[in-house]
Design a protein around this nucleic acid. Structure first.
Lengths: 218, 218
DNA sequence: GTGAGCGTTCAGGAAAATTTCAGGTCGTTG
DNA sequence: CAACGACCTGAAATTTTCCTGAACGCTCAC
């Protein structure tokens, strides 16, 4: 369940989650959130801390499901206060990659191994979602947070062509104003760190985008 | 639903889409778009970002259907801002091939496998729409964006004779000023890359056009 | 405070794609 | 068979896109 009073955020999250195969309910305020949660018993609630009526923490207290809080970046204090075990939080503005990663982490904790897949693998490139470690050909590689998120997005979508706009939408925060040049830079960094040996896995499709995949045998 | 205040664009798109079997409604401004969308619940909205009354993003927010935005090439900023997951955009001037490809991609994502067909096949020539890969006789072939669009157009219309004017209208941007010579050049490139073995699939119909098809057994 | 690491922008150069052009080939017609 | 139009394709010119090193500012840890 997604709870936020801003329609744009609500739509952004629910569309993104539905696309990833989740079943999504929404609510626009605390009152509605509590009601819907009672009827539908969601597995997890993504909950804005700032709601027009009730405080997000108050809502969380009335809901049995684990909660992923959304809070403004500067509201540092809030963060810790209302967190129960199993909960987590993400600061606004977030990137979709980030939210989905947290959601999966929470579900993995609360539902045991019902939400598996923590290790991604393409050719001799490996990524562990839990430890955030990355290896190429057995050698471990150190990545910065953005590099990691970008590589993760590539690996989750291995074999699929991704436009720079798509990459920007998923890996960078939703309010990022810069242009797609930063994607090129980070692809360049990634190549240097994880794609400096054969077979090359990150391929440029000029004026289309990028794709991570094993080149065909022939 | 097609939303654009320029009648020429509106007609171009709606005629092209109707011809491809879509049911099309149109609107000339944001107000009308919201009203029509409420009544008709379209599966997808093709929406110009620049409308005389409301901002395209504002319209999108009031519509539940996924949106394919049309934006001017230089409006780099706009692109990212309003995109929800599931949405996509195409810059003006576009080619009809491009718009239809994006529309099908969005529908495939939002309607699950209700709009399938991501793999086209003619004889031993194959094309994967998702990964943009092409094979002839099992061997993968690398194509430039225009080569790919041209081959895609041929394959979607396999067995149908296409005039150079038709090809120009669909594969090149609608404001392309050059002459049909480029089509000849690109057919030549395609032949070299994907039609250099028997059976020949791209056939010239002198002073009529081209056709992609398996030659009859006899 | 200060330094290291990270994210972002920018710009030059390189690479690739697109378009045009021209000379040659092929088919058709008279 | 000669002439013409249509077509093919190599190559040059042009445009677009991409890569990457360098610089700058910010944050965070010490």
């Amino acid at each position: 369940m997604v709870v936020d009073d801003e329609p744009s955020i609500r739509d952004l999250l629910s569309a993104s989650l539905r696309f990833s195969g989740f079943e999504v309910l929404t609510a626009a305020d605390g009152q509605e959130a509590v009601e819907v949660a009672e009827r539908a018993s969601p597995d997890l609630v993504v909950l804005d801390v700032m709601l027009p009526d009730l405080d997000g923490f108050e809502v969380a207290r009335r809901i049995s499901a684990p909660v992923l809080f959304l809070s403004a970046r500067d509201a540092t204090e809030d963060k810790i206060a209302g967190l129960r075990v199993g909960d987590d939080y993400v600061t606004k503005p977030f990137s979709l990659e980030e939210v989905q990663a947290r959601i999966r982490a929470v579900l993995r904790r609360t539902q045991g191994e019902a939400a598996p897949v923590s290790r991604l693998k393409v050719a001799d490139l490996e990524l562990d979602e839990e430890s955030r470690e990355v290896w190429r050909g057995g050698r471990q590689v150190r990545l910065s947070p953005t590099e990691y998120k970008l590589l993760h997005y590539f690996m989750v979508n291995a074999g699929r062509v991704l436009s720079k706009a798509q990459i920007l939408d998923h890996v960078w925060n939703y309010d990022f104003g810069g242009d797609a040049g930063v994607v090129e830079s980070y692809v360049s960094y990634l190549r240097r760190k994880v794609d400096d040996v054969e077979p090359r896995l990150i391929h440029t499709l000029r004026s289309v985008g990028y794709v991570l995949r094993e080149p065909p045998a022939g």
